[in-house]
């Protein structure tokens, strides 16, 4: 149980940060509104990933499936950051 807790905790945190950052970088709205939207979605995403990780029968599966979600989110974050820096 502890290993699935750890996978959900770490991956949930990273996915939620990534999604919140992506929304901030993509949405063409005022920064304060964007920050509020990020705040509203971040915690529920973290919690959802944590719950999702618990439904797997093994920690390995939870890590693998979680990483499969994190990879595109984090990639998009990197692309958006590069576009902001060099675009």
């Amino acid at each position: 149980m502890w290993s699935r807790t750890l996978s959900g905790f770490i991956l949930g945190l990273l996915i939620s940060i990534s999604v919140a950052l992506n929304l901030n970088l993509m949405l063409p709205i005022a920064q304060d509104v964007s920050l509020l939207i990020g705040l509203l979605v971040a915690f529920p995403i973290w919690v959802t990933v944590q719950v999702w990780s618990y439904h797997f029968s093994s920690a390995k599966e939870a890590w693998l499936k979680g990483l499969m979600v994190l990879a595109p989110c984090a990639s998009l974050s990197i692309i958006l950051m590069l576009m902001r820096t060099f675009g």
Binding site: S16, I17, N24, L25, L35, L39, F43
Partner: peptide, 21 residues
């Protein structure tokens, strides 16, 4: 649950925003 998280763990997102954005 949500408001408690905002009060006590908001700093995590604050740090990530400061560093990245």
């Amino acid at each position: 649950a949500f408001s408690g998280l905002v009060f006590n763990l908001l700093i995590i997102y604050q740090i990530s925003y400061v560093i990245v954005l």
